[in-house]
Write a protein that binds this DNA or RNA. Structure first.
Lengths: 255, 255
DNA sequence: CCAACCTAACTGTGATCACAGATCACGACA
DNA sequence: TGTCGTGATCTGTGATCACAGTTAGGTTGG
């Protein structure tokens, strides 16, 4: 949320994609599906989701509809819509007194979240291992490479590692060919993102030790060998080790 | 959505609970968490969720913000908020042209939904079997009883069966002691409810044949014996048989 | 010097209005 | 009779305003 304040409406980066919907006339106009179908509220939602997943919004951080609206150069209305959606997903919470903030998970909640992730993401990993195409595996491997480089750079490219990690995981999940499953996982990441990635952003050490790098490498190998059990195991280790690390930092709220 | 139209705002059943928030003064006021903390938008959301899960809103049915607002006796605003939340959950969809409707699942989507349900709800059943208290098991058994009676009545109490079925399942899932998991399952039901329960409402035959009754009974037995594998199996059969039946009706959209 | 109060500036919620786009029915033209 | 145009009426979206509640800061009284 570092976008500079702008007094007039409709001015910031949100306008970038606002150009020409355009009406094709020549041939094959059955193909064009929706095209212009994206409201301001949806764009704000995406913006906030990205902020949450990448951990640029810290747990406990408070949001103001008016301030976010100002920062994004839109009116309060679309922000309100976006925040409401995220509150419905419990990715944000409104506490009595009407302040909106990023939830601070208790230890119990974080452990439950981790368990659910192990089940759901583990299943996705198995399915992906069964049916991923070589192309998809190559893409996953490229993300793995990007993550490793970002993690081992000096100094480590923390933001890059966070992004590569996200790309790697979701490329895997999408390879399972189950959109609803991916959607479910995204909602889980929305809740885990603030703690997990805030930490990854802050602490270079975890990256250096390289447990995540090892797990990712094992995952790619398992994919290539179509070893579903090994893939699930590697992913589970990745999730569990990150969770253990977070618990160790003691940044979680009391139960 | 059969509530009669009323011209003035704030009039229908939503006002029932609108009375006295009241300020307790005597003792122990730390316990009361929220209490008054419920906005109109949330109440409308709950209303629509119930309508969806119980199948009283059919797939393909179109909703109008203004009409729903009128029917519920509130302004368009809270309805808008509720619909937006449900659209974000993909429990409703806005199609190009800005009409809001209950999604019509394709066969592929329905199959994926069923697979995800088997994984997630199966996990919940296992966990519940491990740690459910005797009281919780008794409550589940009572719902099972209610379902059986509703299903075997003459004529069958279809609405009662739908409600008892829902109560039974969620009493089970809540016994797992994982709120986030329950929330995830609720979202899945939001999508499955319209087809599953519209059908259960319409067709008495499935109830009579009693496969659901058998599976529910097996589930209760497994719970009492702490047989996690059997509980998962019974639940999986219940889900799968219902899904097979739905596929047989051919009410799903083409792939 | 500390505590309590009180005010001023915020918070989200809800209502109302304006608007662009889509739909549907009716009527005119071919 | 079939087809295209056209306009009234619907749709959701976004902005603006009013409001009740909370919070924080500063001031006043002890």
């Amino acid at each position: 949320m570092t976008v500079p304040v702008q007094s007039s409406r409709r001015s910031s980066e949100l306008d970038a994609a606002a150009a020409a919907p355009a009406a094709p006339e020549g041939a094959a106009l059955d193909e064009i599906g929706s095209l212009a179908r994206e409201t301001l509220g949806e764009r704000v939602t995406e913006e906030l989701r990205a902020l949450l997943i990448s951990g640029r919004l810290a747990p406990g951080e408070k949001l103001s509809l008016r301030r976010v609206a100002e920062a994004l150069g839109v009116s309060m209305m679309p922000v309100r819509e976006a925040v409401n959606r995220l509150v419905a997903d419990k990715a944000l919470e409104v506490l009595p007194g009407r302040a909106v903030r990023v939830p601070v998970l208790t230890l119990a909640q974080f452990r439950e979240l981790t368990r659910v992730r192990l089940v759901v993401e583990g299943f996705a990993a198995e399915e992906a291992t069964k049916i991923a195409t070589p192309d998809q595996i190559a893409v996953i491997a490229s993300h793995e490479d990007a993550f490793r480089q970002a993690a081992s750079a000096d100094p480590p490219d923390l933001a890059g590692a966070v992004a590569a990690n996200r790309n790697l995981h979701f490329a895997l999940y999408e390879a399972a060919g189950m959109p609803l499953l991916v959607e479910t996982i995204e909602r889980l990441w929305l809740k885990a993102g603030p703690i997990l990635n805030l930490d990854m952003r802050a602490e270079a050490r975890r990256l250096d030790r390289g447990s995540a790098v090892l797990m990712h490498a094992a995952l790619v190998v398992a994919l290539r060998e179509r070893d579903t059990a090994a893939a699930r195991e590697a992913l589970a280790e990745d999730i569990q080790q990150a969770a253990d690390h977070i618990e160790g930092t003691g940044r979680l709220a009391e139960g």
